[in-house]
Design a protein around this nucleic acid. Structure first.
Lengths: 336, 336
DNA sequence: TTGTATGCGTTATCAT
DNA sequence: ATGATAACGCATACAA
């Protein structure tokens, strides 16, 4: 059996109130001797307060939920770490919840977070089609929520995103300025809003350069390496694109593999632009031209926003859009 | 204010005991009508039981702590996911704790896990030098613990590891069989047991082939890409090794970068063996010969062992050693 | 400066 | 088949 506040009180010969006060640094009106005596007993018995019992009274658990699609997607570890560092600093602990973007898992975890009385939730990923139900549930639960990276189409919650449309625009424009005109596009899964936004940027840039949009070189991807590989094979074998814009680095990595396999040289025969600027980009030869998203920073900002809501009890709907940055590396080259 | 069991009881016109019974599927001795009536109210009010209050009584939180060095190290996402999948299946939620292998953070998180009354802890990383204190604390806390990937030198706890010595042996032997004799070695940080074990395997293989151990081509690394890069620069510029065994893939990736920079061709001028078989291995040209650790599976096994301890209240000290597997790819070649 | 008593939302024990 | 009540470990209003 664990040692409780009662044990301390008894052994120190004081009331539990006194012990409680000392534990919570409310020792103002307490005699020095008493304080020392109690502290000594606490030390001796190595007493750790039961935060569960404390939560029952205070209605605070010092715990937040972090709900993401999949930690194995290399975009998320950085983001998670940014959240955790801020949380840890604020004396909070983080529940990690992987949903695989499954509606069931998202809902399940939401319920669990409610039941576990987390003080707030950072959520990355609710699908557009399921948004209404999601938002209804969250609001009913009355838990502060900050959306992260995905969910920008919903203005009912605070969130941190990058400006996906602008990012898509910058990437495409870069290729256009290098005289590419047949620019293949490997998008994210259908109906993923951030993919849609990136696609808007793609079409906007094409329009500006008066390049007609060719549906046959636009392929719906899945944000996975394998998906990029498959899409690239189609684009490179059946269509003769001179450039490919993949909506994330993982798929761009797949493009590299397809290129190697087909004996196509990057960047001489094919220019490639990715999205994320993952660390592993450094492994590629040539390095990938890509859009930088500072995932760690996004995590930090989201967590900071959440704690602001928690501490000040103000439900904020502020939406922060990070400025995307084009990182030009060796995978893009003037078309001639 | 959230809706509680009292609200349900009142609205349904029954006692809270009845509601509780129904919530916990102890509805054996309850009339069908009553049951339906209560269920309906629960549905109507969207009642979710407060698991905090429940934990106070049951002494179970259905929560485990997962303590790792850093989720950004690409070895860990797989491992974390393995743990989470098993946990989620068993109706458990996971606290993710990054320690950066810092003694202070490890201790802090241990205390926090105790305070939060987790039902068990999966711990990856306690430093050898700090083990005694760690193990004392854990045992005092009386929380089931399973060690994961790091900590194999301690037989007081159950754990899941790979057979690091054998792995080191296999990797080195492979190079020796390819006629390499000047085999540089980039280890993990000093005093990290798994690195020491791998090193044992390295020396064992060398001995078997009667190759003397040359301290000048053994460099202490840090398990990071940058560290591998620096070490490789030294090895390649000042010593003329024909092969390098890096104690993890991340450092091997650094070796690739150094080689590119120095105009050294892999595998023609230099053979490289890594350790981990990270997914990103596929991006390298040539692909890296390496040791496979199935991190996901290790996570699964560790979690399963932990739940076994939790459910059966048997403190097991079983140590599972996964069989390492040498994956031969294009980065190693016969020396001539 | 310190202590008593109440209550947080459940489950469990014992009645009825 | 159902209910009243104690208990879990703590924080807090109020008392002394």
């Amino acid at each position: 059996m664990s040692v409780t506040i009662k044990d301390i009180a008894k052994k120190a010969g004081v009331s539990i109130t006194t012990v409680s006060r000392i534990m919570n640094n409310k020792s103002e009106g307490i005699r020095k001797e008493t304080c020392e005596k109690v502290l000594k007993v606490i030390e001796e018995l190595n007493y750790k307060p039961n935060s569960i019992a404390r939560s029952m009274i205070t209605k605070k658990t010092n715990t937040i939920g972090l709900v993401i699609p999949d930690i194995r997607n290399p975009f998320f570890p950085e983001l998670v770490r940014g959240v955790e560092d801020v949380a840890n600093n604020a004396q909070y602990t983080v529940f990690l919840c992987n949903t695989d973007s499954s509606h069931r898992k998202e809902t399940d975890y939401l319920t669990i977070m409610k039941e576990k009385n987390v003080d707030g939730i950072i959520f990355s990923g609710p699908q557009e089609t399921q948004s209404k139900e999601f938002y209804q549930t969250v609001q009913e639960y009355e838990i502060p929520v900050v959306l992260l990276d995905r969910g920008q189409e919903n203005r009912d919650f605070g969130g941190v995103y990058i400006d996906n449309e602008k990012a898509g625009y910058l990437a495409t424009k870069h290729l256009l300025e290098l005289s590419h005109r047949k620019i293949g596009c490997i998008t994210g899964p259908a109906n993923i809003p951030n993919s849609n936004e990136r696609f808007k940027g793609y079409t906007k840039a094409l329009s500006e350069f008066q390049v007609p949009i060719d549906d046959s070189i636009i392929i719906t991807g899945n944000y996975l390496m394998e998906g990029g590989y498959q899409a690239a094979k189609t684009l490179l074998k059946e269509k003769d694109v001179t450039a490919i814009f993949a909506f994330n680095d993982l798929m761009a990595f797949g493009v590299y593999q397809a290129a190697v396999e087909l004996g196509i040289n990057i960047p001489n025969d094919l220019s490639v632009v990715g999205f994320d600027n993952l660390t592993y980009n450094q492994l590629l030869i040539p390095k990938l031209t890509t859009i930088e998203q500072s995932a760690y920073k996004m995590g930090e900002i989201a967590a900071t926003m959440l704690f602001d809501q928690i501490n000040n009890k103000n439900i904020s709907k502020e939406q922060v859009f990070m400025e995307p940055k084009l990182i030009i590396n060796g995978s893009t080259k003037e078309f001639s």
